[in-house]
Amino acid sequence: MLKNIFMHSGYLEKALDASWLRNEVIANNISNVDTPNFKSSRVEFESALKDAFENSGIKMKKTDKKHMDMQDVGAHDLKPSVVKKVNTAARMDGNNVDIETEQLDMVKNVIYYNLLIQKIGKEFGRIKTAINEGK
């Protein structure tokens, strides 16, 4: 019973984990902006999650009345992966960190993380309301 109650917030949790890891990776890229031969990395997760949803046949239609809750797409073992950026141009010292891109990505990631925090907070709040019957 508890597993079903927390199934949906589980997706938000996974996205939060990925976003956290992304922050670390971007911080590492930024810290190594002057390191010779350093190649920047990025975190891939959202595309893998999207594949998991598409492969299980779930459509994101909100108008589908039959779906009271999202079915389990079997994404329990999905983990974010760190991938090196290999096709960006490198400078003379072999370093390919684009500081502007990294800073932009960091800002985007912070907003993304904060949004997820708000959403998961609201989800838990709704569960609490349901348990307390609005009291």
Partner: peptide, 12 residues
């Protein structure tokens, strides 16, 4: 966030 979520789940 994991620490906060664990606390919230226990509360719920």
């Amino acid at each position: 966030h994991q620490a906060m979520i664990a606390a919230e789940k226990a509360d719920l």
